[in-house]
């Protein structure tokens, strides 16, 4: 066997080139494939909608035609507003509530998760309650909170934040705590300080975990904001629109579909936002399977 490195290195270069071009092609193929797939799925969804209506012969009050909902969006409501603009205004408010709640939850959840992971006794003491508190029905607390703190957007942001806090705290704790002994030994062999171990090892290795929690939290923050808008006294927000549409459902069924569609778009936008940030932040990471 020869120890000469010449041909071996050359071979590696060519594999590397091949690797890169393959990767680029793969990415292109998967991007265009994904768009096609999404278009097909949208078509399937609309087709399914209309098929269901046709097959069950559902009246307008159970399932309107899709185009009826679209028509409604461009009509003028009783306040003299263009419907989709009115829905958009309410969505904006709910979005602000959810986003502020999520921001607070990120800070608080990250801090709590880190504390739980780094201090064994704190972790053992608090973790069961963090898991338990997730089962607290937020609807039950929301009315009391609204009475307490008023119907302003801050209250709603707080409720949204409460719901978003737990997934972030739990995944942060898990991610920060789940570091291989070899990696810790490696850092110890460099005489790394606790701070260095945290910032150079624990935090970066926890990022994929934290982002899975963040995605759930983004969806939860929208749910929290909507739930917070439900108790009596709220004037604006997509939750209020859904409630009013429900009351006038028999008169204007399209409005409930439009409102729900709006809420779904908002949820999608929040989660999509987190995903885009994740794509940028986790650029160098191995692809995540669970999301």
């Amino acid at each position: 066997m020869s120890a000469s490195a010449g041909p071996e290195v050359a071979a590696q270069f060519s594999t590397r080139e091949r690797f890169l071009t393959e990767e680029r092609a793969e990415r292109l193929r998967s991007a265009s494939g994904r768009i096609t797939l999404i278009l097909i799925l949208v078509a399937l969804f609309l087709g399914g909608w209309e098929f269901l209506k046709w097959a069950t012969d559902a009246p307008r009050t159970t399932l309107p035609h899709f185009h009826e909902v679209v028509d409604y969006l461009f009509s003028i409501n009783s306040q003299g507003d263009v419907v989709w603009l009115a829905i958009g205004r309410n969505l904006r408010l709910t979005f602000i509530e959810a986003l502020s709640g999520l921001s607070v939850a990120i800070v608080a959840g990250f801090a709590a998760g880190t504390l739980m992971a780094l201090s064994r006794w704190t972790g053992r003491g608090i973790m069961p309650f963090v898991i338990g508190a997730q089962t607290v029905p937020i609807v039950a607390i929301a009315p009391a909170l609204v009475i307490w703190l008023g119907t302003g957007w801050e209250t709603k942001a707080l409720i949204a934040g409460f719901l978003a806090f737990f997934p972030i705290a739990v995944t942060t704790a898990r991610g920060i705590g789940d570091v291989s002994q070899d990696s810790l030994d490696l850092m110890a062999s460099y005489g790394a300080s606790r701070t260095e171990v945290f910032f150079k090892l624990r935090l970066p290795s926890a990022m994929p975990y934290i982002f899975t929690g963040l995605e759930v939290a983004a969806a939860f923050s929208v749910i929290g904001a909507i739930v917070a808008e439900l108790p009596v006294g709220s004037q604006d927000g997509i939750g209020v629109v859904i409630l009013t549409s429900q009351q006038y459902f028999s008169l204007q069924p399209e409005s409930l579909f439009a409102a729900i569609g709006g809420a779904c778009l908002l949820g999608g936008a929040m989660v999509g936002m987190v995903r885009v940030i994740q794509l940028v932040v986790l650029r160098g990471y191995r692809a995540q399977e669970l999301s």
């Binding site: 291989s180 070899d182 030994d185 062999s189 150079k200 090892l201 986790l282 990471y285």
Partner: peptide
């Protein structure tokens, strides 16, 4: 120290 596993940081 060189471990049995490469112990490289993925990120």
């Amino acid at each position: 120290f060189i471990f049995q596993a490469p112990t490289l940081f993925d990120w």
